[in-house]
Every structure is written in C-alpha cells, then in structure tokens.
Design a protein around this nucleic acid. Structure first.
Lengths: 221, 221
DNA sequence: CGTCTTTATATGTTGAACATATTATACTAC
DNA sequence: GTAGTATAATATGTTCAACATATAAAGACG
C-alpha cells in the first residue's frame, strides 16, 4: 500500500486556498466577517495578486465568501452542498451517481418519518396537502411526485436534509420510471391523512408502502 | 415577497465558470475528457487569460477538473460532496449544521439497514468485526465508535452514502457526548452477530437500540 | 529497437497598469 | 444642526505582456 500516486504537485493557488481555509478556522471566522484585503494577502503570503485572487475565487466557488467592491471579501453561511448543487444544475452527475443519490434520498425520507411525525404542525400539513392532490397545478405528474416528497421531508425541520432534498429535486425527474409508480396502493392523500390523525406506526407503514417502488431491487433505469 | 436582494452583479469569472459548466454538459464530457486550452478559451470567450484561469480554478475547487502541464485540463469523476469535504476539513461547519448532519447520518444508517442486510457478504462481516471489539487499537473510544459505523454503512455499497459517511467521520468526534452512549444495551458485537445470523427484523431492532442515544430528543451538545 | 536528447507546448507565475463600484468624507443649503 | 449632494479615497475587477517550467512528442543515436 504505497502512498503516493499523486503526481500533481501543489500549485501556489492550491496553497493559498488551503491557507485561507486555515486562516478562517484559526480565527473562528463566521458569516459576516471579512478576510484581509488582496493587497495585504499579497504581502503576507508573498505571492502575486493574481494567485491570491485565484485562491479567493475558489472560496467563492465553494460559496464560502462573497466579494463586495470596496468592502472586501465577506464570509457567507456556507451551503453544505454547494458543490453538489452546481454539479446537479450542470447535469454532470453520472447515472450511477444519480441512482445512489436517489436511494440515499429515499432512505432519508423513510428514516425521517419519526421526526416528521414528531415535529409536524397543522400548518405544515395544510401546506403539504396543497402538493398532494392537485395534479392540475403541474404539467408533469413526476414533478408533483417530487414536489410532494420535497415538501414532506421539510416537516422534519432538518436544514441539512432540506438543502440536500431541494438540490436533488431538480435532477430526479428524468430517472424516475413512471410505470413503476402506478401500481402502488397508498396515495399522497393517505400519507397526509395518517400523518394528521394516525399513529406513528400507521404513518410509517403508509410511507413504506408508498416508497416501495423506489426500494425494490432493480432501482429504476 | 419581492424578488431580488441579490445586488452582486455577475463578474466575468462567474460567467466563465457557468459557461464552462455548460460546455461540459452540452458536450457530455466525463472523466478523462479535456477542456479546450486556455488560449483557445480566451479567444472564444473574449476575456483575458486571467479571467479564464479564475473560472478554471473554480472548477478545480469543485474537484471537477485537474490541470496537467502540457496536457490541459482533464475532467475527474466528480466527488459528490467535495464542498462539504473542504468545509469539514477546515472545521467551518457551525454547530447547528453539525447537529443536523449527525441526525442525517444516523437516519441514513438506520434506513440503510435493509440494504446492509441484503447486500452483506461474509468477508465484509469479518472486516466489520475488526472494528467492533478491539478498543486497544484506538486511543479514543469515540474514534472506535465512529470507525465501526462508517464501516458498517459501507456494506450497503452505496457510493454516495460512503463518500458522505467518510467525510463526516472526521467531524463528529468532538460533538458526540460519551456519557450518553454508555447506558445502551446493544453492543457492536451484537450488531455483528445479528447481521450475520439473525433475521432482518432482529438486525433492525438491534440497530435501533444501539442508535437510540443519538435519536433521543435533545440531540447532543 | 530501445534509449537519450531536443524541442514544442500548455499551464504556472509575475508585474504594472487602468477601470469601476461603493464607502467615507467634505461641503453646501435650508 | 440636519439633510442632501458633490468629491475623493479605496478595494475589487480586468487587461496586457512577458517569462518560467514541466512534460509529451519528435528526433537523434547507439
């Protein structure tokens, strides 16, 4: 198990990127704080302004900072899945990745049933019902299916899961097989009903039935 | 609900980043393919080389490409969670985010029980046992706890989940409360045993008991 | 045919300069 | 003194023109 197949020698911009990340960590910077200005970084790191800007640019790509003229580079609340978001939007995730992500997404929803049930409020259920039974609002039934589940999982109130779920909502449409969904025996209406007035066990069972087409063996495509 | 609080006018580097992503999508580029060389991009996009390099640098930050001297920019299989990985390594995820991620991670493991059980092999179980009962290999019991669960979830064979789980393994150690784990009634050995020779229901119940400290109400810290 | 040398090429790095938006300051008017 | 406006200062945005360097490809040589 020899260590390095890594030929790629570290470039100066790579170093700057890491040094900036390290600077943020050491100084416990959080959203709203600013980084030293480019000129100062040039002096402290002893590299050209160009390289500094490349390093900063990478932090922008990660959604960590935003640059504002005359104010400098200010930190943002980092989106946990910014990279995934860009990959998804650019449709650069290979099919194998999409399948894994779909399995992951469905698994999360199933596992989150407990929290959804625990943390539900009447308002949220009302809101959810709007996505449950009004297909005429959407041209494609698939979109309705996705929107409903995106909304459902939001009830659990887990911010990380919500970001994840929102991003994925865009990319699943093409890989969901409509035929597989037709045979199921529990509807979105049923889910709303059991969530509102059933037991946790009822709700979970309804969800399991509803998601069965996704969890069965040869997973779509 | 007025639309735009977005003051940040798009910079040229932003455009280049998006154009490059779009170029990859349109041409169905995947790992191994190369992008046009910088000089060519300069001509086609009519911006300075510096700007082109900034755009390319951002794709590097996302792990989408790697630059090799004299060969150009070649695409990599994109890590789905490259952004999260960098945030985690730099310890830039706020505590609220870590809590959500831990809940997400535990939820996934619980939901993945079915697949773990379905896809297990004797070899994997043997490997898992190495992390189950040999605390002397680790200085901190917490590290053992994390390593075991990281290994366990790998049996499901979901690449996306594996990446996610590997990244998170590094950051959870500080936020896991050791005291809460002490009272539980199912051990890593029990998990191995039921996975090997119990029913799916047995395995799932053992997992639920084991993960109970994580799923109980006031989630750590 | 294989090994070494040379050359061409794409990325890596630097410097100096100018453009531009926006904050901060100074100034005017009421 | 406060409000509104003109002015200057400042940090980021952009460009151009070089030179450095690693390395893949071509050529020379045994």
């Amino acid at each position: 198990m020899i260590a390095a197949n890594k030929k790629t020698a570290l470039t100066l911009a790579d170093d700057v990127e890491n040094l900036l990340l390290d600077y943020m960590r050491r100084n416990h910077l959080s959203a709203g704080d600013s980084l030293p200005k480019e000129e100062e970084l040039v002096e402290r790191l002893q590299v050209s302004r160009h390289i500094v800007r490349e390093g900063l640019s990478r932090l922008k790509a990660l959604g960590l900072i935003e640059s504002r003229r005359r104010r400098g580079m200010v930190m943002q609340h980092p989106g946990l899945f910014m990279g995934l978001k860009k990959l998804a939007k650019a449709e650069l995730i290979p099919d194998s990745g999409l399948r894994d992500l779909l399995e992951m997404r469905v698994t999360i929803e199933l596992g989150m049933c407990v929290y959804i049930y625990q943390r539900k409020t009447p308002v949220q259920i009302d809101r959810l019902r709007r996505f449950a039974g009004l297909p005429e609002q959407y041209t494609q039934p698939k979109e309705l299916e996705i929107a409903f589940h995106t909304e459902l999982v939001k009830i659990a109130g887990n911010a990380a899961v919500n970001q994840f779920s929102d991003i994925l909502a865009v990319v699943f449409e093409p890989i969901i097989s409509h035929r597989k969904l037709e045979g199921r025996t529990s509807t979105h209406q049923d889910i709303c009903d059991t969530l509102e007035s059933g037991s946790l066990a009822d709700f979970r069972r309804t969800m399991e039935i509803h998601l069965a087409p996704y969890t069965e063996k040869p997973l779509i495509i």
